[in-house]
């Protein structure tokens, strides 16, 4: 997928800063204790999955799709939509017509 043919070191060091960056990417606010425990636990887990380095995957096609299925397409036929009330029913905040979120200040800001 990625164009980097140069594989990164398989188990890069997982620092506290990396954990915070990943948490930001995952939109997870972590308590200080979680930052600490995740740093050590994830390091341990990544260390363990390093065993995959020992598997020779030269020329092996990655698994993609389910059990060899392909080209599952549906016809362009309408089905019944939900009522607006049903669509909004689970929203923590809505005005009866729209979902509501805190103001988006910077359009498309990631």
């Amino acid at each position: 997928m990625s164009d980097s043919s140069q594989a990164e070191p398989l188990v890069p060091e997982l620092t506290r800063d990396v954990v915070l960056k990943v948490a930001r990417l995952a939109r997870l606010h972590l308590a200080e204790s979680e930052v600490e425990s995740f740093t050590s636990q994830l390091t341990q887990i990544l260390d363990y999955v390093g065993v995959l380095d020992e598997a020779d995957t030269e020329g092996v096609e990655p698994v993609a799709g389910a059990m060899g299925l392909n080209s599952v397409l549906r016809e362009d036929l309408p089905t019944t939509s939900l009522s607006r009330d049903d669509a909004l029913s689970g929203a923590p905040h809505h005005d009866g017509s729209y979902f509501l979120v805190p103001p988006i200040l910077d359009p498309r800001a990631e």
């Binding site: 019944t80 939509s81 939900l82 009522s83 689970g90 017509s97």
Partner: peptide, 13 residues
Amino acid sequence: EPNVQTCPVCLGL
């Protein structure tokens, strides 16, 4: 008519 053309799939339920 906002939010009338939705279903579990396009709502990402």
